[in-house]
């Protein structure tokens, strides 16, 4: 794994995310929860995900379920950086009848979007259905990657499906929990303290591991693990808004408007320039 290469991809993804969020203008965008996902998705899409760029519906592709709909724009940025989305102009305004890409995914299997997100807590049951179907089809190649938010784990339906995934020993499921510790109303520990996250997933029959979700080699090591007889959960400790000073660890940047000025500031920071010094 070429860490520098992935690091470049991650930087590129951050630019893409800011660009797409800016396009949404006054409609606001989920900047924070996209930034926390960047390294995780960069390593996944560049280093591990099985896909055929010329046949996104290929049976033996890996499936990615963006259950945490607020991470959709981060997913598009990864798809762009690995060439699934050729040009960011294809993403358009993220609104309207004719688009393919929206700020929360709308299922379109022709374009590699497996699931409509936006109603939290629904992706894991869907992933269980896919994982069971793959085994039924004797497809032992494809994995089902599912991205959950830590706030999303408040939803009971996550655990209902987790329990069944463990019971059915669906070892083709990889759960990625983006633990950025923030949700709309503030820090998760003040809202619903999800302590012992790794132990929770273990108790539900998963192999579980906790990693630094911004450390490329740690993510790579975690995703290189092959789970046998159990589904697999990677709890990634991340920072919401990572890489943009005004958004880092700020609940208000769960969804907010990037003004012209903030857009410039964010871009300069990602490119390694200090805006205040200009």
């Amino acid at each position: 794994m070429d860490i520098n290469k992935i690091s470049d991809i991650a930087n590129g993804m951050r630019e893409d995310i800011v660009e797409m969020c800016y396009r949404l203008g006054n409609n606001a965008a989920h900047l924070g929860g996209c930034m926390s996902l960047v390294e995780l998705l960069a390593v996944l899409y560049y280093g591990h995900l099985r896909f055929d760029i010329n046949d996104l519906k290929s049976e033996f592709r890996d499936r990615v379920i963006m259950s945490k709909g607020q991470g959709s724009i981060a997913m598009y940025s990864a798809m762009h950086r690995v060439g699934i989305i050729k040009n960011l102009s294809e993403v358009g305004s993220l609104l309207g009848e004719r688009n393919i890409y929206y700020k929360q995914t709308v299922r379109n299997i022709n374009y590699g979007i497996e699931f409509s997100s936006g109603s939290l807590g629904q992706g894991l049951a869907y992933a269980v259905g896919i994982a069971w179907a793959l085994k039924k089809k004797n497809n032992n190649t494809s994995k089902v990657y599912i991205v959950l938010g830590d706030g999303e784990c408040d939803e009971g339906s996550v655990w209902e499906a987790a329990s069944l995934a463990g019971h059915l020993k669906l070892d083709n499921i990889v759960v990625l929990v983006d633990r950025n510790n923030l949700q709309i109303d503030g820090f998760t520990c003040t809202i619903n303290r999800m302590n012992m996250m790794e132990e929770r997933w273990s108790a539900f029959g998963f192999n579980a591991v906790t990693i630094d979700g911004h450390n490329i080699s740690e993510i790579d090591r975690a995703l290189s693990f092959t789970s046998h007889g159990k589904p697999y959960a990677v709890i990634a400790d991340t920072i919401k808004g990572k890489g943009i000073s005004f958004a880092e660890n700020e609940a208000e940047w769960h969804q907010n408007v990037l003004t012209d000025e903030l857009y410039k500031k964010a871009m300069l920071e990602i490119r390694g320039n200090n805006y205040d010094a200009l």
Binding site: A125, Y126, G129, L164
Partner: peptide, 25 residues
């Protein structure tokens, strides 16, 4: 047949995933 336990929300999600994979659930 697929037993999903007393979990109707999961039931819908699971059969949706099956449908996504070409089954008639």
């Amino acid at each position: 047949g697929l037993q999903v336990s007393i979990a109707e929300q999961s039931l819908i999600g699971i059969i949706s995933g099956l449908c996504h994979e070409g089954f008639i659930p």
